[in-house]
Amino acid sequence: MNQRIKGKTIFITGASSGLGEQIAYNCAESGANLILAARRYDKLIKLKDELIDKYKVEVAIYQLDVGNLLEAEKILEQIIQEVGTVDILVNNAGFGKFKYVVDTSIEETEVMFRVNVLGLIAITKKILPIMIKQGSGHIINIASQAGKLATPKSSIYAASKGAVIKFSDSLRLEVEKNHIYVTTVNPGPIRTNFFEIADATGKYLDNVGRCVLNPEKLAEKIVKRMLTRTREINLPIFMNIGSKVHALFPSLVEKLARNAFNKK
Results as ranks from 00 to 15, higher is better:
residue 157 Y to F: 10
residue 137 G to F: 01
residue 163 A to D: 07
residue 171 L to G: 05
residue 144 S to L: 13
residue 171 L to H: 05
residue 195 F to C: 03
residue 171 L to Y: 06
residue 193 N to R: 08
residue 156 I to N: 12
residue 169 D to V: 08
residue 186 N to W: 08
residue 176 E to P: 00
residue 167 F to D: 02
residue 151 T to K: 15
residue 161 K to E: 03
residue 159 A to T: 07
residue 186 N to I: 02
residue 133 K to P: 00
residue 174 E to W: 11
residue 138 H to V: 00
residue 201 T to K: 12
residue 156 I to Y: 11
residue 177 K to W: 03
residue 170 S to P: 05
residue 188 G to F: 09
residue 149 L to F: 15
residue 199 D to M: 06
residue 142 I to C: 04
residue 177 K to F: 05
residue 186 N to K: 06
residue 157 Y to N: 05
residue 131 M to D: 04
residue 144 S to N: 14
residue 188 G to D: 03
residue 196 E to D: 10
residue 145 Q to E: 10
residue 171 L to A: 09
residue 132 I to T: 01
residue 134 Q to T: 03
residue 136 S to L: 08
residue 131 M to Y: 00
residue 183 T to V: 08
residue 150 A to V: 15
residue 134 Q to M: 03
residue 170 S to K: 09
residue 203 K to S: 10
residue 203 K to I: 03
residue 151 T to D: 09
residue 191 R to G: 07
residue 192 T to P: 06
residue 181 Y to T: 07
residue 203 K to P: 02
residue 141 N to L: 14
residue 194 F to G: 02
residue 196 E to Q: 12
residue 195 F to T: 08
residue 170 S to N: 15
residue 173 L to D: 12
residue 139 I to A: 10
residue 205 L to T: 07
residue 202 G to V: 11
residue 163 A to G: 13
residue 161 K to C: 07
